[in-house]
Design a binder for these strands. Structure first.
Length: 458
RNA sequence: GGCGUCGUACCCAAGUGGUCUAAGGGAACGGUUUGCAAAACCGCUAUUCGCCGGUUCGAAUCCGGCCGACGCCUCCA
């Protein structure tokens, strides 16, 4: 039984999709004003993991991830660089897509861009005004009236009365009924340049939260199964989404809210001034394999903070290689295929079904790895066990996606290996060792096994 | 100030009332194997779970206090 910790109820609860066998999933995507960093990707990788587990457990997943391509930050960038909004956003959207591919993240069914759904947002705002959940201010902006939604704060348990007294709220917005009311539509300002849409309230642009409500509704309907994001989006973003959506449609909005914790770097916040600010391309340049990045991000539970450090690459590499080398051993012995799995799969599944308990499922998987290696050493594995084992590794990798694609071995490396074999036959160990170093310098490791030399990439 | 998370070995990280003298991975060391390696396997590395009290027959797990780290509180995943 699949169970998730629902941020809304703050409890672990059985997952029951609205429509049997299908899951409608919405995940908050990037704001395309800059390159997404590894903190962003922790969340996207968590969502990928969730989706892969759902698929592995037999659900058909319909996944929508938005692209925020108009907001304060994108507009600011436009002004800074003297480019058009679409030039900026298409550039960073391309980079984002590239990183998704690099990290082997399963593509969503749709990546709607906010600017393509302004009409949907306007319609939704009109409904909210009609129902007296929103009001227009003198400058032509529209705000959501928090008071009008009695459940405001269900997600974050925020007490609006107290916040009002907080020093941190600077009321630079005039004409609001309540300083906490949030913008659905922002009236055009000089600094917006040519970024504007016509609306019943005049020229302007949508507020941030409304896009997710409008687009999730457009693709997934009023009421759907799972909505994910990083913890920092709980307030105000998701709280506001709930308010808008519920008030507009008069139906429940999302059944299960899942939030992933923050990524820390070197024990603290990632920041450019500390020099610990990394994007995916930075890590690839530093020699990280995509699978290693995935392993680091996925090996901690999604609801705990993980601390990213460069030296974790070593750990990830070693763990992945351990799995890969077992796979190679089994592959060499494979004689038949099978649809079955080792018995250990059942506990592994149970761990994943328990709120995506990746650390535990990894531990169980490595238990099996050791047991299987041990059996192989004693030559005690049947043909069926070999086939089942390969299935298990492939099933494991369907969810974690950390094993490297089996790369082709370059011809020059193959030649060096056969030269070395000749040297070894002649017991010319000095030459043999030299050749091994040379092969190593080309990025490959030779292992001498009773069945001859085996190559693996470093 | 409000809300919330966390503190387990050299490092990462499970476990949340008894089966815990605490999984799993990395690292170090010793051994088997190997021409030497690599990989693999075996052994070894916390009688103890930030500290102090309390509840209980029994706590890493519950309660209280303290110390420490981190996050959110209007646009940051």
């Amino acid at each position: 039984m699949l169970q998730f910790y629902n941020s809304l109820t703050r409890k672990k609860e059985p997952f029951i999709p609205i429509e049997e066998g299908k899951v409608k999933l919405y995940t908050c995507g990037p704001t395309v004003y800059d390159t997404a960093h590894i903190g962003n990707f922790r969340t996207f990788l968590f969502e990928d993991f969730l989706k892969r587990v759902l698929i592995a457990r037999g659900y058909k997943v319909f996944h929508v991830m938005n692209i925020t391509d108009v907001d304060d930050k994108t507009i600011k960038k436009t002004v800074e660089e003297g480019k058009s909004l679409s030039e900026i956003t298409s550039h960073y959207t391309d980079l984002f897509n590239h990183d998704l591919k690099t990290l082997n993240i399963l593509p969503a069914d749709h990546y709607p861009a906010a600017t393509n759904h302004v009409d949907d947002m306007i319609k939704m705002i009109e409904v909210l005004i009609e129902k007296c959940h929103a009001y227009k201010t003198d400058d032509g902006s529209v705000f959501f009236k928090i008071e009008s939604f009695k459940d405001y704060g269900v997600l974050t348990h925020i007490n609006m009365a107290e916040i009002q007294q907080s020093d941190r709220v600077d009321s630079d917005e005039y004409g609001l009924d309540n300083p906490q009311d949030f913008a659905l539509w922002k009236a055009y300002k000089e600094e917006d340049g040519d970024v504007a849409w016509d609306s019943p309230w005049g020229k302007g642009r949508p507020g941030w939260h409304i896009e997710c409500s409008a687009m999730s509704m457009a693709f997934l309907g009023d009421h759907f199964d799972i909505h994910c994001g990083g913890v920092d989006n709980k307030f105000p973003h998701h709280e506001n989404e709930i308010a808008q959506s519920v008030c507009a449609s008069d139906t429940p909005f999302v059944n299960t809210w899942l939030h992933s914790e923050f990524l820390m770097v070197d024990g603290g916040k990632m920041s450019k001034s500390l020099g610990n600010f990394y994007c995916i391309s930075d890590l690839i340049e530093k020699g990280f394999a995509p699978g290693e990045i995935r392993y680091i991000m996925l090996s901690g539970h999604y609801r705990t903070k993980i601390n990213f450090t460069l030296d974790k690459q070593h750990e990830a590499k070693a763990s992945i290689q351990r799995i890969q080398s077992l796979k190679d051993r089994l592959q060499d012995l494979k004689e038949n295929s099978s649809d079955e799995y080792p018995d250990e799969k059942s506990n592994y599944d149970t761990a994943l079904e328990n709120d995506l308990d990746a650390p535990n499922s990894l531990a169980l998987f490595f238990d099996w790895v050791r047991a299987t290696n041990s059996a192989l050493d004693k030559d005690a594995l049947s043909r069926d066990d070999v086939a089942k084992g390969l299935n298990f590794i492939s099933y494991f990798n369907d969810v974690f996606g950390v094993l490297p694609d089996s790369g082709r071995i370059p011809q020059d490396v193959m030649d060096l290996v056969s030269k070395r074999e000749t040297a070894r036959q002649n017991k010319d160990w000095a030459k043999s060792d030299k050749l091994r170093d040379l092969i190593g310098s080309k990025g490959w490791v030779v292992k001498d096994t009773p069945d001859g030399p085996k190559l693996s990439s470093k």
